[in-house]
């Protein structure tokens, strides 16, 4: 009788004790030391895990900063205040935060780009893009249904003639529009950067030219002319590295399709509003 109670209790209890001891041993043996500075940096970050820094979240950012892979001022949401705190923790001088802005890397408005078909569905970029890549002939371009406008909490985006424009003076670089855009053509760039290749087409040059008057055809002239080697050509698309660019404007003079735009902070919006 007593045997029937003791045996199961002993077996299950024994299993539990063995596993418990094993786990305790394993957690000591395989202990991963958490860097204290990482934890302290993580504490001063906003903690919204928005991803505006380019990392997967605040934890990742804290790790990258501690490892030196990210700049102290890499958090656009926290701004100068957070940058100062992180700098204090790491014992380095805080660099000045360069304010960022969202920028639509497409200038294919209805007037300069072609369409494939007439779209009569619901007004939603993702829905339109889900239908054969959207009504635009260029599958990389702005769909113009305003998902970014609805995502923006600061009224900084307008749709004009089927194309989204960011009012860079109002933009806080929160990155909501970047996430909302199904075509991934909105990028965060420093406000100081005045030149951008405002095209996202990875098609070959002849196809891009057919679809749109202001697309980058990947000719590479800007790459050659750039004195700072800030421009790279990849997959038929030129990209200006805003951190290397010194706003000399040589590239815009040689671009055959006007795919490079000169954007001074206020101008882009002043033109449209």
């Amino acid at each position: 009788m007593i045997q029937e109670i003791i045996m199961p209790a002993a077996v299950v209890g024994g299993l539990g004790i063995i596993f418990g001891v094993g786990l305790a041993y394993a957690s000591k043996k395989f202990e991963v030391k958490v860097d204290e500075t990482v934890a302290r940096i993580r504490e001063v970050l906003p903690g919204a895990n928005c991803g505006a820094c380019g990392q997967a979240g605040c934890d990742e950012f804290a790790e990258s900063v501690a490892a030196g892979n990210c700049k102290v001022n890499g958090c656009p949401v926290g701004g100068q205040e957070v940058a100062d705190k992180i700098a204090e923790i790491l014992g380095v001088e805080a660099e000045e935060v360069s304010p960022q802005t969202a920028r639509v890397m497409c200038r294919g408005s209805r007037t300069v780009s072609r369409t494939k078909f007439e779209y009569n569905g619901i007004e939603d970029c993702a829905a339109a893009a889900g239908l054969y890549g959207g009504p635009n002939a260029c599958t990389y371009g702005c769909v113009g249904m305003g998902n970014c406008v609805r995502a923006c909490a600061f009224d900084a985006i307008v749709i004009v003639n089927g194309l989204a424009w960011v009012a860079e003076s109002r933009c806080t670089a929160c990155g909501k529009c970047v996430a909302a855009c199904p075509k991934k053509i909105i990028k965060l760039v420093p406000k100081s950067s005045q030149y951008s290749v405002t095209c996202s087409s990875l098609d070959r040059g002849n196809i891009t030219r057919k679809n749109c008057d202001v697309g980058c055809i990947g000719c590479g002239r800007c790459v050659k002319v750039c004195p700072k080697s800030a421009i790279t050509l990849e997959n038929n698309l030129a990209r200006i590295d805003p951190y290397k660019c010194e706003n000399c404007g040589e590239c815009i003079k040689v671009c055959p399709t006007n795919a490079i735009s000169w954007i001074r902070c206020e101008d882009a919006v002043a033109n449209v509003l």
Binding site: L15, F19, L23, A26, F30, E31, V32
Partner: peptide, 22 residues
């Protein structure tokens, strides 16, 4: 049922600890 839950839970915990390190 009881024994298996015990085994699975400890096993997952153990694997997690080891993976984290290795």
């Amino acid at each position: 049922t009881v024994a298996f839950i015990l085994v699975i839970a400890s096993l997952v915990q153990f694997v997690e600890t080891v993976l984290k390190k290795v």
